[in-house]
């Protein structure tokens, strides 16, 4: 077994009053303080919630764009040129790039950022590499908290790049205002595209590597799907028809069109009141997740060295008690949860 890493040292140590004093610095634009708080969120350091509470009233200004797609379609490379275009328009940018944690060792290679190093000295671009740490759905548990920090830091637009996803990882659509799905030629036929999830959550499709053969065909098929879906859609569905954009990120082509589409989609959301609805839903998701996490943590802490639990485990194993009865017995012993 791997030994627990020795961390939680100087940078995350809370002061006497349990306040790290990071929130105030972040609101003044201190990048280092923001970076530290991101660590604390990931490591679940005590006192982190206090900082987030202080920041929350200052959040909600940034526009969050989620970008997802299979491994190797060019998500990071596309984001690199996307950042460039957003900066040209005078916007400040926060970027959260997520890569998978090894389920065997707990370690991770975070290799998204190296495609974006051209922006490393730009103080208005804050990029953060994140490992999933066992979280499912293409995101990490800390993602929403990290969005809040970048928001409070004053970033106008926050890009969230998921891990290279397969077919069901659509969690990013729940935490973003706009969801961009990136594809590339040669990654399967229309049956792949029809599978649940991908088509429904996309606000904008990007077919990257458009210099490669087959890109136009992918675009056509996607547009066909979107068209037939709109024919079948009931009037209760939003009327936004996802755009399909051809890009060549390495050749810096098609990016302006992507930026325009993101803005156009935003105008649509604002005009129809859909943006407010999405954010309401996001607040609900976050609240429910926070409750769930707190309950889980509480149960984990309360039962980790519990003799009664061990006793019940033995009884369940020997078929003396069924797991359902045992679970309700345990739950009955819980005191109300106090969250820090």
């Amino acid at each position: 077994m791997r030994k627990k890493a020795n961390k939680g040292f100087n940078e995350c140590l809370p002061g006497k009053d349990m306040s790290m004093g990071l929130a105030k610095k972040i609101l003044e634009g201190d990048i280092q303080a923001a970076a530290r708080l991101l660590n604390c969120i990931e490591d679940e350091v005590q006192g982190t919630n206090e900082e987030l509470k202080e920041l929350y009233p200052y959040t909600g200004k940034a526009y969050v764009v989620g970008l997802t797609g299979s491994a190797g379609v060019g998500k990071s490379t596309l984001i690199n040129v996307f950042i460039k275009d957003l900066r040209k328009k005078g916007l400040t940018v926060g970027v959260i790039v997520i890569d998978p944690t090894s389920p065997f060792t707990g370690g991770a290679i975070l290799g998204d950022r190296l495609r974006m190093q051209g922006h490393s000295l730009d103080q208005e671009v804050f990029i953060r590499s994140v490992a999933t740490r066992g979280w499912k759905g293409g995101l990490s548990k800390a993602t929403i908290g990290m969005i809040h920090v970048m928001d409070a830091l004053g970033k106008d637009i926050i890009l969230v790049e998921t891990v290279g996803t397969g077919q069901g990882e659509i969690e990013v659509s729940k935490i973003s205002d706009a969801c961009v799905i990136i594809l590339s030629p040669g990654a399967g036929d229309e049956v792949q595209m029809m599978k649940a999830g991908i088509l429904e959550v996309a606000d904008i499709f990007v077919v990257n590597k458009a210099d490669k053969e087959g890109a136009a065909e992918v675009k056509l098929k996607l547009e066909g799907m979107i068209y037939s879906r709109s024919l079948a859609a009931s009037s209760t569905l939003s009327e936004w028809k996802p755009k399909v954009i051809l890009t060549n990120a390495l050749g810096d082509k098609g990016i302006e069109e992507l930026t325009e589409s993101v803005f156009e989609h935003r105008n649509f959301l604002t005009a129809t009141g859909e943006l407010e609805k999405r954010r309401q839903e996001r607040a609900r998701t976050e609240l429910m997740d926070t409750i769930k996490n707190s309950v889980e943590k509480h149960i984990y802490q309360a039962t980790s060295k519990d003799a009664y639990l061990e006793e019940l485990v033995n009884k369940v194993a020997s078929r003396e008690v069924d797991p359902y009865t045992a679970a309700s017995k345990i739950l009955r012993t819980f005191t109300p949860i106090v969250m820090n």
Binding site: R2, G107, L110, G111, Q117, F126, I127
Partner: peptide, 25 residues
């Protein structure tokens, strides 16, 4: 494999390595 999170940068200049380390804490 030792359980660390490794952020790859490739070829870089000292100043940019430092700026990255700062953002990545």
């Amino acid at each position: 494999d030792a359980g660390m999170e490794v952020i790859l940068l490739g070829n870089e200049l000292p100043e940019r390595v430092v700026e990255t380390a700062l953002q990545e804490s």
